[in-house]
């Protein structure tokens, strides 16, 4: 039981982390709050359903296509909606609230109200310390870790990556150095959207696909970034893992009241460490 909770918690937590990383990127590089970020996660799952189940395309290709499609959607959204409100947290919150309703409602008209399933591809299980873990869960975890590592390498080693970090730390100085802030913002949004979509695409076979995935996702992402410390990517990962574990154990051991217990845990952690796990006091 404990082992299962652990595995589930880590898998869930990694996907929470992927969504929260994107939210953090948008907060730090574009200084916008994207309340519609959960909907991008939902779109990743829905796109995977359509490409994999309706069109019958291979699952891995479906994931990649979903990520690309939602990434492009992200670029379009940034250009049309968010570019004008860069740096304005409240305005971006209001706009993205409307956007989230629009995306969720619009998708529901096409997809329908019923949840649908995406078949598992990774068959079998893996023996580990006398316990079994399904291959499914292992692949989700592995894929998430690869994406996170990929992002880390991008930010640390590529020219665009260092531009993004510079813009997040001092956007005026970055502009003075000749950085094209519009370009950095576009790429940042595309990456954030892609990560959320990846989480949705990966989780689709494990649970279910529906157009109501977005709401809980953004709620959890907000809790994660507060837990982990706003503006910190490692914090988003750690916070995601922690919330995943809390939710997983609470669901198993406490059943119905697990959501509430999760929040109680989070409140306790924040009381002890208001800056979050990795955050710095007084920053944002």
């Amino acid at each position: 039981m404990v082992f299962n909770c652990l595995v589930n918690g880590i898998v869930l937590g990694l996907t929470y982390g992927l969504i929260a990383i994107g939210l953090t990127l948008l907060l730090s590089v574009l200084r916008v709050f994207n309340f519609a970020h959960g909907e991008l996660y939902m779109l990743g799952a829905v796109a995977t359903y359509y490409i994999n189940v309706t069109l019958g395309i291979n699952y891995i290709v479906s994931i990649i296509l979903s990520i690309l499609i939602v990434g492009i959607i992200g670029i379009v959204i940034e250009r049309i909606l968010f570019r004008k409100v860069r740096g304005q947290l409240i305005a971006s919150l209001v706009i993205s609230l409307g956007l989230s309703l629009f995306i969720a409602g619009g998708t529901m008209i096409i997809f329908g109200e019923k949840s649908k399933g995406v078949p598992t591809v990774a068959e079998g299980s893996f023996e580990f310390l006398n316990q079994t873990v399904s291959m499914e869960r292992i692949t989700v975890a592995a894929a998430s870790i690869i994406l996170i590592l990929g992002l880390h390498l991008f930010l640390k080693r590529t020219k665009l990556g260092i531009q993004m970090r510079a813009t997040a730390q001092n956007s005026e100085a970055a502009a003075l150095m000749g950085v094209n802030i519009d370009q950095v913002s576009s790429v940042g949004f595309a990456i954030a959207a892609a990560l959320a979509a990846a989480a949705g695409a990966l989780i689709a076979p494990l649970f279910f696909v529906s157009t109501s995935l977005g709401g809980p996702a953004i709620e959890r992402a907000i809790v994660v970034i507060v837990l982990g410390g706003m503006g910190s990517i490692p914090g988003a990962i750690l916070g995601g893992l922690l919330l995943g574990l809390i939710n997983s154990f609470a669901a198993s051991y406490l059943g119905g009241v697990s959501e509430m217990i999760s929040f109680v845990f989070v409140i306790i952690i924040l009381l002890l460490r208001p800056q979050g796990l990795v955050g710095v006091k007084g920053v944002d």
Binding site: R165, A166, A173, M177, G178
Partner: peptide, 19 residues
């Protein structure tokens, strides 16, 4: 000073060489 506080000194210099 307008530095990038969490970038290394070398990375700050590299930003100066951006153009």
């Amino acid at each position: 000073k307008g530095l990038f506080p969490q970038l290394t000194v070398l990375e700050n210099l590299k930003m100066g060489a951006f153009l």
